[in-house]
């Protein structure tokens, strides 16, 4: 089981993900914007971040960019329903280009989330070890 950080400004989705991941046995931290998420990440041993893309203050792309600059080994799954009539796929492709290792489209199924989380945690690429 792992420590996972959920970043989403929408309380409903945050509660959904937190509930789901805790039921699966993970320790879950939560933040309602990218900046709080970044602060939590730098102060706790987080193994995986699940972040929404469109949020006020620091959004998911800014969070990915900040992590890429200072914590390049951080594992991030991006999640979005698309914005401003933009195809959610394009939004998430953008997240991938900023370093997200996987993407989830809203609306999602719990099984999909758990499967992608397991896959991300099991991956043993260069992002497995957190930099000190």
């Amino acid at each position: 089981m792992a420590t996972i950080l959920v970043v989403d400004d929408d309380e409903s989705f945050r509660i959904y993900l937190v509930t789901l991941l805790r039921q699966a046995g993970h320790t879950v931290l939560e933040a309602d914007n990218g900046q709080t998420g970044l602060d939590l990440f730098t102060s706790a041993p987080v193994e995986l971040i699940i972040t929404d893309i469109f949020m006020p203050q620091m959004d998911g792309i800014d969070l990915l960019a900040a992590l890429g600059d200072h914590h390049p080994r951080a594992k991030v799954i991006a999640i979005s329903g698309g914005y401003k009539a933009m195809n959610p796929r394009l939004t998430l492709d953008m997240a991938s280009s900023f370093g997200a290792i996987d993407i989830i489209t809203k609306p999602f199924q719990a099984g999909t989330v758990l499967e992608k989380v397991s896959k991300a945690l099991e991956s043993t690429d260069s992002k497995t070890e957190r930099e000190s």
Partner: peptide, 21 residues
Amino acid sequence: NEMKQELEAGFSTVLRHYQAG
């Protein structure tokens, strides 16, 4: 129904948050 099956005990709490929105 899918969401209820997936979330089990946590379903009611989660749904109440969605309803508020």
